[in-house]
Amino acid sequence: MYRQIKHSEYSKEILEQLQRGAFLTVKSGDKVNTMTIGWGALSVIWGKPVFTVLVRKSRYTYEIIEESHEFTVSLPIKGQLKEALGFCGSKSGRNTDKFKECNLTLKDGQKVNVPVIDECDIQIECKIVYKQDMDENCLDADIKSRAYAKGDYHTIYYGEIVSIYIKE
């Protein structure tokens, strides 16, 4: 059973888990994919609770998120799913059914047309309110050399949090 929470109620747990990994899930038509993310931001922008994610254009997730304009973030804050996070961060959904390979259960989102991963503790459902391609000329040189040596920059998606809930 899930209980609705405020975006700030578990912000510490969300941000700590994000550094260890979370699942970014997207859906368009019959295409569903998840990928592991370790970067993101929980914030308030334009008077709205927002979760920001970054997706490289080379990723299968990018193709789907561009079609759907929604996403979910599922966080296993009790330390579970380490192997699934590793797998989903190293395999492409173009040619691998990550949900089947990792025995992950999809559950319909409450307010978006994107599922959440039911084995996770906290679910964040978002509708994209803004996106922007990174401008390499505006990027710190150290970050550019460490994270973008191959020039594969991210698109940044700002998702208004329309529902956030925790498993009880």
Rank of each mutant, 00 (worst) to 15 (best):
10 Y>I: 10
73 V>P: 02
143 I>C: 05
4 Q>C: 03
56 R>C: 01
4 Q>H: 05
58 S>D: 13
97 D>A: 03
59 R>C: 05
56 R>V: 02
44 V>H: 09
48 K>Q: 11
24 L>Q: 03
62 Y>Q: 04
144 K>I: 08
131 K>Q: 14
59 R>W: 01
8 S>L: 11
85 L>A: 07
161 I>K: 08
97 D>W: 05
11 S>E: 14
143 I>S: 05
6 K>C: 03
97 D>P: 07
24 L>M: 12
14 I>P: 02
13 E>A: 14
45 I>R: 10
154 H>I: 00
7 H>D: 05
87 F>D: 10
47 G>W: 11
51 F>E: 04
168 E>F: 02
98 K>E: 06
15 L>R: 12
152 D>G: 04
110 Q>W: 05
41 A>K: 10
96 T>P: 00
88 C>R: 10
142 D>M: 07
39 W>I: 05
1 M>N: 02
56 R>I: 02
61 T>L: 03
13 E>L: 14
90 S>H: 14
61 T>W: 01
92 S>L: 07
124 I>T: 09
116 V>P: 01
36 T>C: 10
10 Y>Q: 13
70 E>Q: 15
102 C>W: 08
109 G>R: 00
62 Y>P: 00
33 N>V: 02
65 I>P: 04
42 L>P: 06
3 R>C: 02
61 T>G: 03
35 M>I: 15
120 C>A: 11
4 Q>S: 13
17 Q>I: 06
12 K>N: 11
143 I>L: 13
75 L>C: 10
22 A>Y: 04
8 S>P: 00
140 D>N: 14
79 G>F: 09
17 Q>V: 06
26 V>I: 03
127 K>G: 01
109 G>C: 07
53 V>N: 01
96 T>G: 00
68 S>P: 02
162 V>W: 03
84 A>E: 15
117 I>R: 10
36 T>V: 07
78 K>G: 13
148 Y>P: 02
79 G>R: 08
17 Q>S: 15
96 T>C: 09
110 Q>M: 12
166 I>P: 00
10 Y>M: 15
101 E>D: 12
121 D>R: 07
58 S>N: 11
124 I>V: 15
3 R>H: 12
71 F>P: 05
91 K>Q: 11
98 K>N: 04
8 S>V: 06
161 I>D: 09
15 L>V: 13
87 F>E: 11
156 I>P: 09
113 N>S: 14
121 D>E: 15
78 K>T: 14
58 S>A: 13
2 Y>M: 14
80 Q>F: 03
26 V>D: 04
165 Y>D: 13
92 S>Y: 01
155 T>Y: 10
142 D>L: 08
125 E>A: 04
159 G>R: 05
39 W>G: 01
117 I>H: 08
76 P>N: 10
101 E>P: 02
50 V>L: 02
95 N>H: 11
100 K>V: 13
102 C>S: 15
57 K>D: 11
108 D>P: 14
165 Y>C: 08
70 E>K: 08
